[in-house]
């Protein structure tokens, strides 16, 4: 019997996508017993959801610093579970939580995390083989995970979640562990942009260095408004101070997967593409005819955004109203 431990996550009071994807990954690897850890206030419903989603056992932490999102205790708790159930594989996600928790959990267990996995399978010898991007997406590495246990993190939205089966049942237990917080959260400061959030938007209009300055983002806001979408940006545009860093799409920014992604004045460096390559349709507008973005786009317009966008907006007004 192969056991998996999924380090699950909550998102806005509900079971997060990371948890569903982690459970699905454990099933892809034919794990016969899947345990899930989740932390957060009032998580009874989420724990049940995890069972329906394919977990056999759920460990909950419903109070204390871990439930508030303190990494140190999430690591302490997951370490204790891992020692107790001795899974063959531990699966997390490369989310804001997983980026901190997964590597440190692995080191504490005497092994090392295999991060950012996009796909996974078993080979003839039953070893776990993962594929992960490197060199900013220019090179994919296939890696045999030979650690004991194997600890991996998934790139968000790389694995499809399974459907819910409400007839499934499993044990839900609150776990006890010794709290030890050494890096403490003092205060959270929200810098939320108005309107639809980037990650939820069905349409994202993103601008980059090619826009030449912050003023251009007014046109992008207008465009996003017409399409009911949100505005994003490349790291270059954020670092230049044209828009806040919360707009950043890419490897070190947000990962979005909208139906439509319109990239304007973005060269398409792989660091950026890592954040938007899940978009169903990618449109590129760029006057640099050799820009890499045209290799990744479904539709492309090679031209100056200052001429293309106003006409595009005008035509959209006619079509949509």
């Amino acid at each position: 019997m192969t056991k998996a431990l999924v380090i699950g996550e909550m998102l806005n009071g509900e079971l997060g996508a990371a948890t569903f994807e982690g459970i699905a990954a454990a099933r892809i690897l034919d794990c016969s017993n899947v345990a899930v850890m989740i932390a957060g206030a009032s998580i009874e419903l989420a724990a049940e959801q995890a069972i329906f989603a394919g977990a056999d056992q759920v460990f909950t932490i419903s109070q204390g610093p871990a439930a508030d999102g303190e990494f140190d205790d999430l690591i302490n708790a997951s370490y204790k579970i891992a020692k107790e159930i001795e899974p063959e594989i531990i699966i997390g996600s490369k989310t804001i939580i997983g980026r901190d928790v997964m590597p440190r959990l692995a080191f504490r267990l005497g092994t090392i995390l295999v991060p950012d996995c996009m796909s996974l399978e078993r080979d003839a010898e039953q070893r776990i083989i993962v594929t992960r991007p490197t060199y900013g997406g220019n090179v994919n590495a296939r890696i045999a995970c030979v650690g004991q246990p194997v600890v991996i993190s998934l790139r968000p939205k790389s694995i499809d979640a399974m459907g819910l089966d409400q007839s499934r049942s499993g044990a839900i237990n609150e776990i006890e562990f010794t709290s030890n917080i050494r890096t403490r959260i003092i205060e959270k400061i929200e810098e939320k942009s108005e309107g639809i959030s980037l990650q939820d938007a069905k349409t994202v209009v993103a601008g980059g260095r090619g826009l030449g300055g912050p003023e251009a983002f007014d046109s992008l806001q207008e465009l996003a408004g017409i399409l009911g979408g949100a505005v994003g940006a490349s790291r270059a545009a954020c670092d230049a101070g044209w828009v806040p860093s919360s707009f950043q799409v890419g490897l070190t920014g947000k990962t979005v997967s909208p139906d439509l992604y319109i990239a304007i004045g973005i060269s398409g460096a792989s660091q950026h593409m890592a954040g938007c390559s899940n978009a169903k349709t990618l449109v590129a507008i760029n006057k640099d005819e050799g820009a890499n973005i045209f290799k990744e786009a479904r539709f492309g317009v090679k031209g100056d955004w200052e001429k293309v966008i106003p006409a595009f907006i005008e035509q959209l007004h006619e079509l949509i109203n």
Partner: peptide
């Protein structure tokens, strides 16, 4: 992702 936190 939407702001920052102060940790100590």
């Amino acid at each position: 992702p939407d702001g920052y936190e102060i940790v100590e």
